[in-house]
Amino acid sequence: MIIKTILSVLAFIVFAPFAGAILTGITRKISARAQGRDGGDITQPISDCIALLQKGRGENSGIQGYYVKVSLFFNVLAGVLFYAGMDLLMTIACLGLGIIFMVIAASVSGTYYSRLGADRLAREMVAAAPMMFMVAIGFYVRCGSFDVKDLAMSGPVAFLPLLGLFAGYMLIPCGKLRRSSFEYRMPHAMYQKDMNSIADAFDRKDAAICEIGSWYEKTVLYSITYLFFANGTLLMTAVGVVCTVLTAVLQGIIENIEPAADGRRAFKSAWLWAFVIGIVNLVIIYIII
């Protein structure tokens, strides 16, 4: 048993960045194709990151380098806990810590746009928090324990009873991971297409590490969507993997459906959706099943 968990943890640490990069590549390609553009190939994020790493460390590396590394550590820790079959709540907490340290790194670096991005990322995390915990509670109510081991191996598929939570989870991470959902980006020149406001003031190496951290985070979030389908049988794992790829495709489309809602409305709708749908779904499970 121990060897199996160590193997799965090692597999996560090695393969997670590539899986995350390919998922980011799929989202980028789909969103480009939806706009009519012929976006680069799927492995473009990997080559972008390697190109950045090849350029070595720049001059303004300051203190934000440490915070970015700590944030990377927590994202990896979240994945390790998840694939070691430990507590689901711990994974969500580690993800939250990963983002907190990213927010500190962005606000420490001092330039206006990165502070703007830090404020945006903090709002996103606070808006997404209730939905994540609702999902964890939903799993607990369904099969009695928080441990990922039992959730993955237990009998009936968790997708149907937790449909509302699944839809909510789809919207919030999509909203959360979508680059421009809460964006306050104020372009001083109207063609300012290159301000992505978080990793903008970072040093070259820190930007690459921040990118790798976001890949780890993306794999963990997608493996939680995979958890909705997993019940140990080979068929359901295949269905789960297909569904995670589908969520990547869905995000590429959702990113282009509408302009960025201004912060306050998106914030309220995220919390409203989390509580209403979450509670209704939990009540249904508790009474019927």
Partner: peptide, 18 residues
């Protein structure tokens, strides 16, 4: 296209560019 860009509505902006 520039106005849609300010609203972060990338797909409408790209549609105007095409």
């Amino acid at each position: 296209a520039a106005i849609a860009e300010t609203l972060n509505f990338d797909s409408l902006s790209m549609m105007c560019w095409t």
